[in-house]
């Protein structure tokens, strides 16, 4: 068990001279560099999508879960009384941290995107909105609805569940899609590197024969190919990630107006995830080449 990490380290670091025993081969080198570069570039965007979706889902879930809206729809003469009654009920309800009636200006601002800035609020049958902030633990929604129904006939409690859930689910689906994309990218990269490694191993069958004749172990021969492909994948993925990061950096800054599409960048520790992409690319190349080389060397016995 304890020998395995040492063996992997020896495979990867090994003898620098061992890299020279395999002749340089243009086709497989270019294929590996290009494939790993392109895949790393795509992985950066998939990662950006996944992380941004995750942030969005967390934010929506967090912000919306703690708030509710109470709508008072009543004739103008009764609206103030019903609002006061509702606020009183909310004050008495366990689990409600705070409740306040939105001012006419705040309600006008909410309607401004649709009706314009100069809304004659007094002429419109706009219901009174009360913002309810939930405490810890939360309130009993069903009980509150029953009491409001009895004491404030014009009140409708909306805890946002109806439209919050699909939004959060959509954001979570996007996050999962991003991770699935990264897994598919890694799989496609592994397939391409396996093809390139197999081509290189087939092209160097005579080299392998000579190495065996002079006493090279399979581990040594495999190591020569593994080092070469892993290094190429690391370089290719490094370039791909750099280009991907430039692409992400050129995206517009996150803004309220732009919504989701302008929030695709990386933030905070998200940048560390990006740095893992070349390492992941190298690890994929290592595993793919190791598998291809082991299989090929067995066949050549």
């Amino acid at each position: 068990m304890s020998a395995a990490p040492g063996r992997i380290r020896a495979l990867f670091l090994g003898d620098p001279q061992a890299g020279r025993v395999v002749p340089p081969s243009g086709f497989t080198a270019h294929l590996t560099l290009f494939a790993s570069g392109a895949m790393a570039f795509l992985a950066v965007f998939a990662l950006a999508l996944s992380l941004a979706s995750g942030r969005l889902a967390d934010r929506w879930a967090d912000e919306l879960a703690k708030s509710a809206t109470l709508r008072i729809t009543a004739p103008a003469g009764q609206r103030a009384a019903q609002t006061d009654a509702a606020l009183e009920i909310l004050r008495q309800t366990p689990g409600v941290a705070s409740a306040r009636a939105l001012s006419a200006e705040e309600q006008a601002a909410l309607l401004a995107p649709w009706l314009g800035a100069d809304i004659p609020m007094d002429d419109l049958p706009v219901p009174q909105l009360i913002e309810v902030i939930e405490g810890e633990p939360g309130y009993d929604g069903a009980g509150l609805r029953l009491r409001l129904g009895a004491e404030v006939p014009g009140a409708v409690l909306d805890d946002h569940t109806r439209w919050r859930r699909p939004l959060v689910e959509a954001a979570n689906s996007l996050r999962r899609l991003g991770w699935v994309s990264i897994a598919l990218i890694a799989g496609a990269m592994a397939a391409m590197i396996t093809l390139a490694a197999n081509a290189a191993l087939a092209a160097n069958a005579q080299v392998i024969e000579v190495l065996r004749l002079v006493g090279a172990r399979d581990r040594y021969i495999a190591g020569a190919f593994i080092r070469r492909f892993t290094l190429r994948a690391l370089i290719g993925a490094g370039v791909g990630v750099a280009l991907g990061m430039i692409g992400v950096a050129l995206l517009p800054e996150a803004s309220e107006e732009g919504g989701f599409l302008t929030g695709l960048g990386f933030r905070g520790v998200g940048w560390l995830w990006v740095l893992l992409v070349p390492v992941l690319g190298a690890a994929v190349a290592f595993a793919a080449t190791w598998r291809a080389a082991t299989r090929r060397l067995k066949e050549l016995t």
């Binding site: 003898d15 001279q17 061992a18 020279r20 025993v21 002749p23 340089p24 005579q206 080299v207 024969e209 000579v210 190495l211 004749l213 002079v214 006493g215 090279a216 172990r217 040594y220």
Partner: peptide, 19 residues
């Protein structure tokens, strides 16, 4: 049976290298 991309000295030293 040499490795044609390596100089003669490295080919001769190949058994040392692989061991």
């Amino acid at each position: 049976r040499f490795l044609d991309h390596l100089p003669v000295a490295e080919n001769i030293a190949l058994p040392l290298t692989v061991s």
